[in-house]
């Protein structure tokens, strides 16, 4: 039995050293941390995290100034990825920042719009087109759903519409596993 133990420990040691070595030799030269964090953030640019956009929030996280659970659009999955990346504990979304909502896009009621351009100025990703005194439209593909344009509208003609499932964007679901397995995905 003792011999077996020694052998096992030996193997474990050798493997450990080999793995350690491999992780050093094959280390991936990655982007700087901020870019990695920024890549996880959803780029909604909504500012709910308390920073003027995702990049600033990423910088704040990288500097250790901000917690990882302040981005509502990124949701739980985002927090999990950040936790993974930074080797931190997962924690639920900070309710102060907001709540996770299904993705929506802004829609402008074109009959009410007075063409004040306030929404254009508010949109962080230039997804609203139109010029002064002319009616404005949201380019749905570009809209990140940040809701920043809703408040500034003086005639309240912007509302958020959840993105509906269509045949084009429908996804196959994860197959229901018939065996009960506590699978650590």
């Amino acid at each position: 039995m003792l011999a077996a133990l020694f052998v096992m420990t030996g193997i474990a040691l050798v493997l450990g050293v080999a793995l350690g070595y491999a992780s050093r030799v094959f280390k991936v030269e990655g982007d700087p941390l901020v870019d990695k964090i920024d890549a996880i953030l959803p780029q909604t640019q909504c500012g709910q995290c308390g920073y003027p956009g995702c990049k600033p929030y990423a910088q704040a996280i990288a500097k250790g100034e901000a917690d990882i659970n302040r981005c509502p659009p990124g949701g739980e999955e985002g927090i999990r990825k950040l936790a993974d990346l930074l080797g931190k504990e997962f924690k639920p979304l900070d309710a102060e920042a907001g709540v996770e909502k299904p993705k929506s896009v802004a829609v402008i009621d074109e009959n009410t719009c007075i063409g004040c351009t306030l929404c254009i100025q508010a949109c962080p990703v230039d997804a609203i087109v139109g010029s002064s005194k002319q009616m404005h439209t949201v380019v749905a593909e570009l809209c990140t759903g940040c809701e920043l344009c809703v408040a500034p509208c003086p005639v309240d003609c912007i509302h958020m519409e959840p993105v509906t499932e269509t045949i084009e964007n429908w996804k196959w679901k994860y197959p229901v596993a018939e065996i009960k397995e506590r699978h650590a995905a």
């Binding site: 920024d38 959803p42 780029q43 909604t44 640019q45 956009g53 995702c54 990049k55 962080p124 990703v125 230039d126 997804a127 593909e141 570009l142 990140t144 964007n169 429908w170 996804k171 196959w172 679901k173 994860y174 197959p175």
Partner: peptide, 27 residues
Amino acid sequence: RFAKSEIWSREKEKAAADAARSRFEFR
């Protein structure tokens, strides 16, 4: 099928996020 459609949609999402990022930066 699940994996494929998930990969597609992620790629789309990622492209959208990248676009949003560059538009935001541009703005």
